[in-house]
Computed example of a mutant assay.
Amino acid sequence: MRISFCCTDTKAQPWLEGLRAAFPGADVAVWSAGAAPADYAVVWAPPQQFIDEQLQLKGIFNIGAGVDALLKLRLPPGVPVVRLDDAGMSVQMAEYVCHAVIRHFREFDGYEADARQGKWSYRKPRLRTDFPVGVMGLGVLGERVGRALAQFDFPVIGWSRSAKAIEGVQCFSGQAGFNDFLAASRILVCLLPLTPDTDNIMCQGTLARLKPGGYVINVARGSHLVDEDLIALIDSGHLAGATLDVFRTEPLPAAHPFWTHPNITVTPHTSARTLREESIAQIAGKIAALQRGEAVAGVVDPARGY
């Protein structure tokens, strides 16, 4: 068995060692142009040339949860594209989102600003019932985030393309439920996959439907958000601010207004990082299952984009 590793901006050696340990008899190597065809590919944002040269693939394994970059390529028909189910990312995402929600709700950003000026300040406690959190996207990560937020007694609302039922989360679905979902939310968390239907989904028309004083948390993809619309709605007072972890251009350009806006918190795409050991174990298990002719979880539907 031959496994080809082609992951942009990823240190290859630890991945190669882990895959070789899982498959001692396999030929595991970093891809180079003209290399022998592989049986399986482990990838992150590979070039089209890699896909074009791999004419014998039985499976393509993406080392992240998002597959939007991969689906932009011309992929071989009939070859399953498999994403990570979780591999330690959902708990990280729940930590990040809960931190962002609580930091805004408890006004810790204001206390931090006061402390920098040596000011001992007081803010009137706010009611959780006034801060319903809408989670947009209820896949593995979204469901974990929704359940975590419910543990802090926030009203949690969820929206997904197809109907879901999650304990502690009031679920909306489809286009028919989208506007009602937005209108019921004061804090909006984006955890959607990036598809043609979700590109620019957070724009003036949607964000203006949030409850007054709304707050935006984007941990999905930068292209979900229209940057100028967010800033305009914050400056108008309709939105209170935002915490953003993903951006249209990464790293975020030095001149981008997000860096200096007083009501926007920026983090460097760190909400949920790929955990290498867990990911290797999951990929290896799925390769072994495919070798045995078994079905595996996480197979992407290219028509839906996730």
Rank of each mutant, 00 (worst) to 15 (best):
G213F: 04
T260Y: 09
V219H: 07
T8H: 15
R144Q: 13
V67D: 00
L84D: 05
P196E: 11
A87W: 05
T8Q: 13
C203S: 11
R292H: 14
P212D: 14
W44N: 01
V266C: 11
T265L: 08
A255D: 14
F23H: 04
L75P: 03
A184Q: 14
A38W: 02
P268H: 04
P155Y: 08
V101P: 05
V133F: 10
A115L: 11
H104E: 13
V101W: 04
L57V: 05
R161P: 04
S4P: 00
T129N: 09
I187T: 08
T249E: 07
A65K: 08
S160V: 07
T267C: 00
V189Y: 10
L73C: 09
G222F: 12
P24W: 09
P24Y: 01
Q117Y: 01
A232H: 11
N263K: 15
V140G: 02
V28F: 02
G205N: 15
S173W: 14
Q291T: 02
R74G: 00
T198W: 15
L57M: 08
I287E: 01
Y111H: 06
N263R: 15
L290Y: 04
P76H: 10
E107D: 13
G213V: 02
I287F: 06
F181K: 01
M89N: 08
V79T: 07
V189L: 09
S4M: 06
A183S: 12
H224P: 09
R103A: 11
C190A: 15
G118Q: 02
Y111S: 10
R20S: 14
L194E: 10
A94P: 02
F131L: 06
D180N: 12
G222C: 03
K58Q: 13
D85Q: 14
I287P: 07
A220H: 02
S160C: 08
P46M: 08
A289C: 04
S160H: 11
R116V: 01
A38H: 09
G213R: 12
T274N: 07
A254V: 04
W159G: 02
Y40K: 10
P37L: 02
C7I: 00
V30N: 01
P46R: 06
D229R: 00
P132V: 13
I264M: 12
Q54H: 09
V133T: 04
K119H: 09
E167C: 02
A184S: 14
R304V: 06
F131W: 14
V28A: 05
C6N: 14
G137K: 07
L252R: 06
D52A: 15
I234C: 11
L55T: 15
F178I: 07
P212I: 03
E250K: 10
N62S: 12
C98W: 04
P76K: 14
A176Q: 13
N62C: 13
D180G: 13
L70D: 11
D114M: 04
F108G: 00
D86N: 10
P37I: 12
L182I: 07
A184D: 11
R103E: 10
K124T: 08
G168L: 03
L194Y: 15
Q56P: 00
A242D: 09
A115S: 09
K124V: 13
A100T: 11
M202I: 08
V97L: 06
L225T: 11
E277A: 15
K72G: 03
F108P: 11
A281G: 06
C171W: 10
A45R: 14
T249N: 03
T10M: 10
N179G: 04
F50Q: 05
